[in-house]
């Protein structure tokens, strides 16, 4: 599977979608919808609605995150907003403010 990388000196306003793995080191404002894992690295900053099968947050995210399988909030991450996913991991050292909804598809 190919990879899309948003470099640390890049900012995007709009929508990013597709089937590639997405690595975010820069900034995205808008919507991110991928059919492959999304990784937001330490310097990455998102103001966005983010959806992917697995979302790993190591940077700063303000918005909504939907992880169809899993969401991981890593040490050093700052997550402000709501998370919807059946599985969530929050590491020691992560900052999280928002709601968690784990009722995805489980009646």
């Amino acid at each position: 599977m190919a990879e899309t990388t948003i470099g640390p000196r890049t900012s995007i306003e709009g929508t990013v979608s597709g089937k590639d793995i997405l690595v975010v080191q820069g900034q995205i404002r808008g919507t991110v919808t991928m059919d492959a894992p999304i990784r937001i690295e330490r310097e990455g900053r998102l103001e966005a609605v983010v959806q992917g099968p697995e979302v790993a947050i190591g940077g700063t995210v303000q918005g909504h995150v939907v992880g169809l399988k899993k969401v991981e909030i890593l040490p050093g991450a700052k997550m402000i907003g709501d998370v919807r996913t059946p599985r969530i991991l929050i590491s020691d050292g992560a900052v999280f403010r928002g709601r968690v909804d784990m009722d995805v598809g489980e009646g």
């Binding site: 190919a2 000196r9 890049t10 997405l22």
Partner: peptide
């Protein structure tokens, strides 16, 4: 460093990069 848009990725909007 660089930005790379993969073959199965679509960006709709503006991209600014250094």
């Amino acid at each position: 460093t660089r930005t790379e848009i993969g073959p199965e990725t679509v960006v709709s909007g503006d991209v600014r990069a250094d």
